[in-house]
Amino acid sequence: MLHRASGRAERLISDPLIGILGLVLAAAVVMAFVQPTFLSLSNLTNIGGAMLAIAFLSIAMTVVLIAGGLDLSVGAVMALSAGVAAAVINNGVPLAGAFVAALVVGTGVGAVNGFLVTRLEVPDFIATLAVGGITSGFLLYWTRGVPILGYMTPAYEYVGGLRRLIGPITVPMLVLIVLALVTATLLHRTTIGLRLYAVGSSAAAARSAGLPVNRLKVYAYMFSGFVAAVAGIYLAGRTTTVPPSMGTGYEISAIAAAVIGGASLLGGKGRVLGALVGALLLTLTRNIINLTGVESSWQTVLTGAVLIGALLANHSWGDLVSLLRRPLRTAAHTEAYPEPTTREG
C-alpha cells in the first residue's frame, strides 16, 4: 500500500506537466503583484477567450502527434472552415447548416491529408505544409483577399463567446470541456485510442500486430480537420470577421502547446490535459506581454522561441529527472541486492 502510494507520488513528481503547471502558477502569482489588472475578471475571461482557439488546435495536433504524424495545416483549415461557415450564413442558411458545412470541409481536408500521407506516402510535414498552403491559398483566392463580414447573429454571438451563458461561462468553453473529455476518453478508454498510441510508437510493430495502420492514421488526420473546423466556427464568432490571414501562425502555437503538454514529434506520446496546459501557458505568456506594455509585434518572436524551448524542455526533462533519481534508486537497489563479489579466477 505504502509502496504503491510512493510509486504514484514518484510518478507525479517525474510528470513534466507538474513543472509546467508550477511555471504557470508562478507566472500568475508574479503577475498578480506586478500588474493588479491581471486578476481582474475582464482580463481572466480575455485569457480564456484567447486560449480557446489554440486549445482546440492543440488537442487536434496532440491526437495527430500521438498517431506519429504532424498536421501543419490546422491553422489554414481553421481559417477556411471559418470562411465557409460565414459565407454559408450570408447565403441565408440557418446556423446549424453552416456549421455542418464547415465541419464537413474541415474533416474533408483532414481526409486529404490522411490520403496523401498514407496512400501516396508523402512525408507528413511536407504533405500537410502543402495542403495548408493550398487551403489558405484557396481562401485568399475565393475571398479575393477581402474579409468576410456581416454574418453575425445573436445566436452566433453565443457560439463565439461574445454573449455569456451563466456568469463567466460561455458556450465555446463548454464545447472545449466536452471535446477534451470525449477525446481523452477515446484515447485512453477505447481500443481505437490505444491503437493510435501503438501506431505512433512504432508503425512497423503495429502493422505486424495486425493493426490497420493506414486507416488509423487517416482517422487521426480527419479528427484533426474536424477539430480545426470547430476552432474555425468559434473564432469566426469571436472576431466577427474572417480575414484570409486568419489562421496564420496558429499551427506553430498548436505544435508548441502540444509539445509543452508532453506530446513527442516521434509519436506515441501526448495527453489532452497536457495540450490544454500547453495552450494555457502560451496564452498566458502573450497576455503578460500585452499587460506589461511590450509591443505586440514581439509575440511572433516569442511564439517561435517558446516552440524551440518547449521542444528542448520536453527533450531534456526526462534526462533531468532520471539524472536526479538515479543515485537514490542505485543506493536502494544495492542495499536490497548487494553486489555479488567477483570471483577471483
Partner: peptide
Amino acid sequence: IFAMITGLCII
C-alpha cells in the same frame, strides 16, 4: 491562385 499552385506542385 498561385499559392494553391505552389502547394499542388509540392505534392
